[in-house]
Amino acid sequence: MAAPIDPDFRARLAALNEKFAATVPGTLDKIRAALAACVAGGELPSQDALHQLHEVLHGVAGSAGTFGFMVFGQESRRIEQMVRGVLTTQTGWAPVVPEVEKLLHWAAQDAKASHYD
């Protein structure tokens, strides 16, 4: 087997994974706050509130998998796409709320879990 070019690669990757893990509670707070802003908007949230929710979910979707939080990233991507649909069509908001709440509950238990239920 060939020796790695950078012998410290795994140690640095583990450190980055730990750093990402430390940001998860704050990220969940951002998702929670964005959802609250959306819900406060009534039946259909404002575009600004929806953009905020979309942005935070998009950030998780784009980075979580890189740091070993595959399912968290996948589910965030799925819900991000639901929010994008609401932004585009101005319909379909109602099912988004329970999906975000489920994600928040699940991730608060173990955002690195390999099963989503």
Results as ranks from 00 to 15, higher is better:
Leu53Tyr: 06
Gln47Met: 08
Ile5Pro: 02
Arg32Lys: 13
Phe67Gln: 04
Pro45Ser: 08
Arg12Val: 05
Gly92Trp: 09
Ser114Lys: 07
Ala15Phe: 02
His115Asp: 10
Arg12Pro: 00
Ala61Leu: 02
Thr66Ser: 10
Glu80Arg: 04
Met82Arg: 02
Asp117Ile: 01
Leu53Glu: 05
Phe20Gln: 04
Glu101Phe: 06
Leu50Asp: 05
Ala2Thr: 09
Gly26His: 11
Val71Ile: 09
Met70Leu: 13
Asp48His: 15
Ala94Lys: 11
Asp117Tyr: 13
Trp106Gln: 12
Ser63Val: 01
His115Arg: 11
Gly41Asn: 11
Ser46Phe: 08
Glu101Val: 09
Leu35Tyr: 03
Met70Pro: 03
Glu99Ala: 13
Ala15Lys: 06
Val24Gly: 02
Ala113Gln: 05
Ala3Asn: 15
Met1Arg: 09
Ala33Val: 03
Glu75Ile: 05
Arg12Ser: 01
Gln47Ala: 06
Leu87Phe: 12
Ala11Val: 01
Gly42Ile: 08
Ala21Asn: 02
Gly62His: 01
Phe72Ala: 06
His54Asp: 12
Ala64Val: 00
Lys102Ala: 14
Leu50Val: 14
Ala2Gly: 10
Thr27Glu: 06
Gln90Asp: 06
Asn17Ala: 03
Leu57Cys: 14
Arg84Ala: 09
Gly85Glu: 06
Met82Asn: 04
Trp106Cys: 10
Asp8Ile: 03
Val97Trp: 02
Gln90Trp: 06
Asp29Lys: 14
